[in-house]
Computed example of a mutant assay.
Amino acid sequence: MLPNILKETVRGIQPILIEDEMLQHREVFLIEEVNRKSATDMIKQLMYLDRIDTGKPVTVYINSPGGEVVSGLAVYDYIKVMKSPVNTVCMGSAASMGAILFLAGKERSMLKNSEIMIHDPSFSAGNISGKKPLEIQERLDQLMDTREKLAGIIAERTGMTKKQVYQKTEKDSYLNAEESLKCGIATKIIE
């Protein structure tokens, strides 16, 4: 449970969740795995902020190991259609789908000792034992389509070519803040 802070209101001194206070300042956090629940929570917060003060910037702070591609892309797509500009800040680590969400930001800042990890999507949720060759091939084709989609996002947001992206994502690539800035993943380092 998040700690409360005390704030003076017209009703006197009231305990308020820190998360609520941060949301009032248009700050959203992804500090967990990307999954259906965390993605839905983020989208609701972003919708609310876009609705109450359209056009005013929102900051998304990320420290995430990544997670589900479909859920993450739902958040990414929503950020890209918002009327309010969204800036992202990497605190700690933005890995895998966390890195893709980091790339959704108009301005993408990293704390000095943060890192980004990008890689090809993996075949993790399904068991292929007992599957026939064409069923396995169908799953592999879906995985390659996802790889193409994610590489397209990275290339578009960074200015890298898809060939450069594929070279970086064929294995887990950990990039510190300076390396991220140099290859276009980050736009600024916060010191």
Rank of each mutant, 00 (worst) to 15 (best):
M1C: 07
L6T: 08
L6K: 11
V10E: 15
V10K: 15
R11H: 15
G12Y: 15
Q14C: 09
Q14D: 04
P15Y: 01
E19H: 08
D20G: 03
D20M: 11
E21C: 06
M22C: 12
L23A: 15
Q24H: 07
Q24T: 07
H25E: 09
E27V: 13
F29E: 10
I31C: 11
E33Q: 03
A39K: 05
M42V: 03
M42G: 03
I43Q: 00
K44R: 14
L49T: 10
D50L: 14
D50F: 05
K56T: 10
K56D: 13
K56L: 05
P57Y: 05
P57C: 12
V58D: 07
T59P: 03
Y61F: 06
N63Q: 09
P65V: 02
G67D: 05
G67H: 06
E68W: 03
V69F: 09
V70L: 10
S71E: 06
S71N: 14
G72M: 00
L73I: 06
L73C: 09
A74N: 09
I79D: 01
V81L: 09
V81G: 11
K83W: 04
K83G: 12
P85E: 06
V86T: 01
T88S: 02
T88L: 07
C90A: 13
C90E: 05
M91K: 11
M91S: 08
G92Y: 08
A95D: 12
S96G: 06
L101T: 04
F102A: 11
L103I: 04
L103E: 01
L103T: 04
A104R: 10
A104I: 11
K106D: 15
E107M: 12
S109Q: 15
M110V: 07
L111S: 13
S114I: 12
S114K: 06
I118T: 01
F123S: 02
A125N: 13
N127I: 11
P133M: 08
E135P: 09
L140S: 00
R147A: 02
K149F: 14
K149P: 06
A151D: 04
G152A: 15
G152S: 02
R157S: 08
R157A: 00
R157D: 14
T158A: 06
K162W: 07
Y166N: 09
Q167T: 14
K168S: 09
K171I: 01
K171M: 14
L175P: 09
N176Q: 05
E179P: 01
E179L: 11
E179N: 00
S180D: 11
L181A: 12
K182P: 04
C183A: 14
C183E: 12
A186K: 03
I189G: 02
I190V: 13
E191Q: 10
